[in-house]
Design a protein around this nucleic acid. Sequence first.
RNA 1: CGUGGGGUAGAGCAGUGGUAGCUCGUCAGGCCCAUAACCUGAAGGUCGCGGGUUCGAAUCCCGCCCCCACAACCA
Length: 659
Amino acid sequence: MDKILVTTALPYANGPIHLGHLAGCYLPADVYVRYQRLRKRNCIHIGGTDENGVPITIKAEQEGKTPREIVDYYHKTIKESFAKFGIKFDNFSRTSIPLHYKTSQDFFLNLHGKGYIVPKIQKQFFCPRCQRFLPDRYVEGTCPYCGSEGARGDQCDECGKWLEPLDLKNPRCKLCGSTPVYRKTKQWFFRLDLLEPRLKEWLVSKRDWKENVRSFTLGWIKQGLKPRAITRDISWGIPVPLPEANGKVLYVWFDNVIGYISSTKEWAQKLGEPEKWRDYWFSQDTRLVHFIGKDNIVFHAINWPAMLMAHGEFILPSQIPANEFLTIEAKQMSTSRNWAIWLDDYLDRFPPDPLRYVLASNAPERSDSNFTWDGYRMKTNNELVGTFGNLVNRTLQFINSYMGGKIPEKSSLQAADMEVLNKINEKKKEVGDAYENFSPKRATEKFMELAREGNRYFDYSKPWELRKNDRERLSTVIWLATSLIANLGVMAEPVIPFTAEKIKNFLGIKHWEWDDVVGEIINQGAQLGKTEILFKPVSRGKIVLERRKMMGNIIRFSEFEALDLRIAEIKGAERIEGTDKLIKLLVDTGGDTRDLVAGIGNVYEPEELIGKKIVVLLNLEPKKIRGVESRGMLLAAVHDGKPVLLTVDADVPPGCVVS
RNA sequence: CGUGGGGUAGAGCAGUGGUAGCUCGUCAGGCCCAUAACCUGAAGGUCGCGGGUUCGAAUCCCGCCCCCACAACCA
């Protein structure tokens, strides 16, 4: 039987997890794994934290802690927030454990023994003022290829060329700005160049890879591969296992990926079958799938397969479904500018499933995608609450209210019923294909279509009428609606597992799986478990708070000045028909007279409004509400959910500027 | 200068040769089982611009314009 080994990029243990990590890597992986499990396939999810390297030592220095304290803290928080969010790992390891040290060192020695790793005395930059060798990215200078000023030691961002620090002209230490000096030091290099032909051939054969991954990789390798240093002169990391390499450690990109192997080993040990990891890594019938973000493509599609090829015993990746990036409110995420939504912070106030759903349905699969709080609210309220949750609720409520809380038994099926059954099967196929092809986005779309189908069936069948005149037909209709819900639960489980679990309990189903026959998934006559509302609507106010929080509470004066606030006099007021609290106001703003729509009818009567001087925001974008174009907004204090109009302390003419 | 991605209805997106689609929003109607939720219908796009290939192009080719990422330890 085929095995699937899923890995997710090891998050660097110097900060918490944010939405970008989830959308690009961990959620798609978790969805994929959960789907495979539902299909009873042998699939394990391996991960862990990356805990070596310079940035962690710098973070430790900044916070006056030891690197050990830093990685311990972040390993714990990352692990916890994944667990709370429902990202399930079979093993979540860390690269600072002895097992990983040994695995990495063995790997190094293996390649070294085969001549793929060679030493080279190298002149490397040493900053006399900082008293340290400078990592590649901490050296800046002029790019030798394109002449750009701000090139880093590892790569020029202007022309995209991969560089060695010594290539740079006019080098500077990025930490202190002083000119570094050359110092001789011995480093070990991985002969990527030797693997280039094989690598190229292998990559070209990967026609089923996502286009973004494939084209990026092939473009990269066209530049040609050079030996790449894999050791460094720092103290925090895995010692190079050679007697002459005292004080050197493995460079993180080399040991990080090996973490997938050591984490699998750890998993096997914990299982009490320490050799079991070999079933995966040494077996040609294992599909090795690496979920990563797009910034990791080169390491996983070039360096890592090259390492595996050089070693020779391990299988090679069969899929690398890298996603693009997720922006927040159309702006690139940035930790330093604090433009990010942190998972643990989100989970303090919101449940996991709505975010899982929103991120899955808006996943950056082919191009960057954008997360907005308003979009989050819309999707939650319209799709999860309105369509999905409501279908479940209206059906189960019906059973509870009118059918004694027991799942009814079907009798003969009509054409409409058969159509629905076919629809379920059809959607199941489509949703399954979507999961299989790494598209949770498409999967959510398809299972939501089924939920709509369910609502339609419910409406057309009119069970509230059948209840009075055709109990037999009623039973069949509700049976089918309930079956649909159960199947919907199965299909949606990879994306919204907490919700699926609830549905399972509502229906008294102990166990379900993908291949359950559509019409037989529920037990006729079974008593419903305790039911509850699946999703709560997200209020506008809650979203406003989140956005404010993220943008910070300070605005520029110019931003305030952009608001055209004026005094206006109410000339006319009338209720808008068919609404509870909307009032159409005619106001004199000094310059013109215009309509405003205000939701104050629950507190004010139109008559009492006339003649009042109020504060109005004039340059708000016009909005059509119930057929009336509202050109501006009146300001009111809101107390206990009720508006109180802002007025002026002395009589001033309409049009008077508020500042 | 380069690399990668993108420009399709008010918004967010799907659609790789054959009458332009989805969700939301807007407008109108229906229903009352359900979390003011559900269902139906309508309006709304010269598919970034200009050429070309083709019986036929959002979709293929050429040229151009615009946006984003590739810096601050951000997947």
